[in-house]
Amino acid sequence: MGFSNIVVAVDGSEASQEALNHAVELARQSKSALTGFFIIDGGWPNFIGNDWQSAKGARQGFLDYIREEQEQQAEAARQQFEAAAEGIAESRFSILAGDPTELMISKANAVDTDLLIVGQRIFQVSGRPSLRSLSKRLAAKATRPLMLFP
């Protein structure tokens, strides 16, 4: 089966390494483009949404702190991707922001995604508890080829 664009979710941790290695291998074999991405979880304000007693400074300070951690993780993901994708003619990496589950489903179903490759523990390194079920929901909602790694 030939691919023109293989997409892989990368989070800069071991959880995405195997999926990334496989995506790179497949992209080399099929001479396809490789697209990596990281998602900055935009669900934190809602997650602490009922925290109505926090001082504004404490609440915003916390959100800024979490954002900083996620930006560092995004940079780690970029480095992980670039190291693995070295030598691939057409590779690109992007950082998205929003609800990881929704964005993953939209990536999985995009017309220019020939195959989405994902590790099952993706984004748990800096995410909310519900992201543990992200791959399960992705498998249920994906309408295009999807490859899940343990």
Binding site: W44, F47, I48, D51, S54, S126, G127
Partner: peptide, 23 residues
Amino acid sequence: GVSAAVATSPAVEAKASHVAYAI
């Protein structure tokens, strides 16, 4: 609860995933 977790996390360098499970 949440107010205290939010107020304390940056001061003790808590990771996002740790805070999430505490909350």
